[in-house]
Design a protein around this nucleic acid. Structure first.
Lengths: 209, 209
DNA sequence: TCTTTCGATGAACAGCGTTAAGTCAAGGAT
DNA sequence: ATCCTTGACTTAACGCTGTTCATCGAAAGA
């Protein structure tokens, strides 16, 4: 009964092919400027075929972003793993590195970041789709929260710092600088590195004892 | 020769009517979900008439946002004026109030905020349109910078704080929290007020002596 | 060989932003 | 009073869009 398996394999392959074509177009041209017909053309299938694999255009983009944010999670995991190897790591420095990874990830994948966080969602669809517990973006947020908690329990942070509140505030801050740099690259910002470091450092200083 | 004047008056009236209809639709339903045809229907004119008054849909939205951000500038001016009346004002508290005004403005005009800062711009058009020097948004940023400078020159901030860098960093932080709250209102954030205050307070603490 | 299954498609729908050509009333000129 | 011009406005259309539905056709099972 290898037939069903071969078919299934082909199905997942085609699905992957669609995802890759869509990713390339979305990343280079942005969500709004890519049509289903162009994606179909790129993979040399009919536009309707895509709908056999993805509910609609938004779902397709969501899956593309999931793949990308999986990479972000993996970078966090690498960081986590490197900590296990080292002798002893300053929890605050660990947190700082995580925040830097986050911002750099956004700067290196601007269109994914735009779509995931800077695109007006379709009406009626929950805007919080990317925020649901089982998404890659939320998994990444989990790493951030963990790093913050480490700072709290080891007494690096001031008394009374709430882990959840602090995590959200830090996320908001790094999201802010990432979003502005990604969306308005032409704006005469101070040097990117300096600005990113400034946001991260000032926030951390605000929390640190 | 009152004829030309009457015509000109009628023209500006109709222009205003279009702006108001567009504002209501955009604010209630979001940029992407409002069509030129629906705006035209609302004002009981043909869709093409709108193009006699605005270059295209994006230009129309830009003008709507300019009107709204003018309100933000006015709120900053009010704050500035209230300072002139008072005996002596702590520059840091003045800055904090400005930041709070900014965030609350975004939370009170979520769709304007989305369009101005969270909408993927059309291809080929400069994304930095809202960032050009003569826009209302940039005028508002000028107020922020001024408030930061006041903190720097009165010695409220740590040594070596760069006014431009600090202004951008603060803007990034408040933009971040505003953007996340506006875009993902369903996310189980900590209480809005607390989160906003956390971001602002930690940043200010990071700068303050 | 006949039937069923199901992935893929062509044609179509309703809507979009935008443009070119045309209409028609009002104002100025003779 | 008639003609001409101006210009605000509309009608019709173009080339798109995302999406759906009925249909086709090849491969698998009976």
């Amino acid at each position: 009964m290898g037939v069903a398996e071969r078919k299934a394999r082909h199905k997942t392959e085609l699905r992957q092919e669609i995802l890759e074509a869509a990713r390339e177009l979305f990343v280079n041209e942005g969500y709004r400027h890519v049509s289903m017909r162009r994606i179909a053309e790129k993979i040399e299938y009919s536009p309707t075929t895509i709908y056999l694999y993805f509910r609609d255009k938004e779902d397709l983009m969501f899956q593309v972003c999931e793949d990308t944010f999986r990479q972000l999670s993996e970078q966090f995991e690498e960081l986590h793993a490197s900590k296990a190897g080292a002798e002893s790591v300053d929890p605050v420095e660990y947190l700082r590195k995580g925040l830097e990874i986050y911002v750099n990830f956004g700067l290196n994948h601007p269109n994914h970041y735009k779509v995931a966080f800077l695109t007006e969602p379709e009406r009626g669809q929950e805007s919080a789709k990317y925020c649901e517990a089982d998404t890659m973006a939320m998994r990444a947020f989990g790493y951030l929260r963990q790093a913050v908690e480490e700072c709290v329990v080891t007494g690096q942070f001031r008394d009374g710092v709430d882990t959840d509140l602090a995590s959200e505030a830090l996320w908001a801050a790094v999201h802010g600088v990432t979003a502005l740099l990604v969306q308005y690259p032409e704006f005469p910002w101070s040097a990117r590195d300096r600005l990113v470091a400034e946001v991260i450092n000032r926030m951390i200083t605000g929390f640190r004892k």
